[in-house]
Amino acid sequence: PREAYIVTIEKGKPGQTVTWYQLRADHPKPDSLISEHPTAQEAMDAKKRYED
């Protein structure tokens, strides 16, 4: 089974940042970016789909 994890990042100019959620996995390479999402819920949904 595949495993993934969610990383929170800040995008934008200082003082005007927006939080994004990255879905990452250690396949095919360590810390590979799988997808980016504007909400934590979307990231969790993507994580479930990826791991299923």
Rank of each mutant, 00 (worst) to 15 (best):
E42S: 09
T17W: 11
D45F: 08
K47H: 05
E10Q: 14
I34G: 00
Q16P: 09
E10D: 10
E3F: 15
A43W: 00
S35Y: 01
A46Q: 03
A4S: 09
P30H: 09
D31I: 03
Q41H: 09
T19Y: 08
R24E: 02
K13E: 15
E36W: 06
T8N: 06
K29M: 14
K13I: 14
A25T: 15
K29G: 09
K11G: 04
R24M: 14
K47D: 00
T19Q: 07
P30G: 09
A4G: 08
Y50V: 04
P38N: 07
I34T: 01
D52C: 11
Y21E: 01
R24H: 06
D52I: 12
D26S: 14
A25R: 11
K47N: 01
I9C: 09
P1K: 15
L33M: 06
Q22L: 03
K13L: 14
W20F: 08
T19S: 06
E36H: 02
E42N: 04
D52E: 15
Y21F: 09
T8I: 14
K11M: 07
I6G: 00
L23P: 00
L33K: 03
Y5V: 05
M44F: 12
D45R: 10
P38M: 12
A46H: 04
V7M: 07
R24C: 12
D26K: 13
V7G: 03
W20G: 02
L23V: 13
V7P: 00
Q41W: 11
G15I: 03
W20A: 04
Y5P: 00
K13S: 15
M44Y: 12
V18C: 10
Y5T: 05
P1H: 14
K47G: 02
A46T: 02
L23I: 06
I9D: 02
H27F: 15
T19C: 08
G15E: 06
K29H: 14
R24N: 02
S32Q: 09
G12W: 04
E51F: 06
K11A: 05
V18G: 06
T8K: 15
I9V: 14
P14T: 11
H27V: 13
A4M: 09
V18Y: 09
A25M: 06
A40K: 15
Y21K: 00
E3L: 15
A4V: 12
Y50T: 02
T19E: 07
R49Q: 10
I6F: 03
K47Q: 08
L23H: 00
S35L: 00
A40S: 09
A4T: 08
G12R: 05
Q16M: 13
W20P: 00
Y50C: 03
P28I: 08
K13G: 13
R49T: 08
R24G: 01
R2A: 09
P30M: 09
A40E: 15
E3T: 15
R2N: 09
T17F: 10
I9Q: 04
A25K: 08
R2T: 10
Y5L: 03
G12T: 05
H37W: 14
H37P: 00
Q22E: 11
T17Q: 11
I9Y: 07
P14H: 10
D31P: 07
P28C: 08
T19R: 10
R2P: 11
W20K: 04
D31K: 10
M44T: 07
A25S: 15
R24L: 09
L23K: 01
T8L: 12
K29I: 14
R49I: 11
V7K: 08
A46S: 04
L23Q: 01
M44L: 14
D45A: 13
P30A: 09
Y21L: 01
K13N: 12
E42K: 05
R2S: 08
K29N: 11
I9K: 05
G12D: 04
Q41R: 10
E42T: 04
V18F: 06
D26W: 08
Q22A: 04
K29P: 15
Q22T: 03
P1Q: 12
E51G: 06
R49F: 09
E51S: 07
S35E: 02
R24P: 02
P28E: 07
D45I: 13
L33H: 03
E10F: 09
P28W: 06
Y21V: 01
E3R: 15
R24I: 12
S32G: 05
V18K: 14
T39L: 03
Y5Q: 04
A43N: 00
H27D: 09
L23N: 01
G12N: 04
L23M: 03
T19G: 04
P38V: 10
Q22S: 03
P30C: 11
D52R: 14
Q41S: 10
S35K: 01
P1M: 13
A40C: 15
L23R: 00
E42F: 03
L23C: 03
Q16K: 13
M44E: 14
Y50G: 02
D52L: 14
S35F: 01
R49A: 14
T17I: 11
L23Y: 01
D52W: 10
G12I: 05
R49E: 10
H27M: 09
I34W: 02
Y5D: 01
Q16H: 12
R24F: 14
K48D: 07
Y50D: 01
D45G: 06
Y21I: 01
A25L: 06
P1F: 14
H27W: 15
D52Q: 15
V18S: 10
I6A: 00
S32C: 07
Y50A: 03
D31V: 04
E3S: 15
P28A: 07
A46K: 02
T17R: 10
P1N: 14
E42V: 03
K48M: 11
H37E: 01
E51V: 08
G15L: 05
H37S: 01
Y50I: 05
E10H: 11
K29R: 13
A4N: 02
Y21D: 02
D45Q: 12
K47A: 06
P14G: 09
T39A: 03
K11F: 07
R49K: 12
V18R: 08
V18T: 13
G12V: 05
E3G: 14
P1D: 09
A46W: 03
T8E: 14
P38E: 11
R49Y: 08
H37F: 08
G15Q: 05
I9G: 02
T17A: 09
K13H: 13
K13Q: 14
G12C: 05
Q41L: 11
T39P: 00
A4F: 14
T17G: 08
A46F: 04
H37G: 00
T19M: 09
W20M: 07
L33A: 04
P38K: 13
V18N: 08
E42P: 00
T17M: 12
E51Y: 07
Q22I: 04
T39K: 03
Y5K: 06
R2K: 13
I34M: 03
Q22R: 00
R49M: 11
L33N: 02
L33E: 02
G15T: 05
E42L: 09
G12P: 03
Q22G: 02
Y21C: 02
Q16G: 10
T17K: 13
A43C: 06
S32W: 11
A46C: 03
A40G: 05
S32P: 02
P30D: 06
P28L: 12
S35A: 02
M44N: 10
G15H: 06
L33S: 02
A40Y: 15
T39H: 04
R49V: 13
T17E: 12
L33C: 08
Y21A: 00
D31N: 15
S32T: 15
A25F: 04
H37D: 00
E42G: 08
Q22M: 02
A43G: 02
I34Y: 02
A40N: 10
S32Y: 11
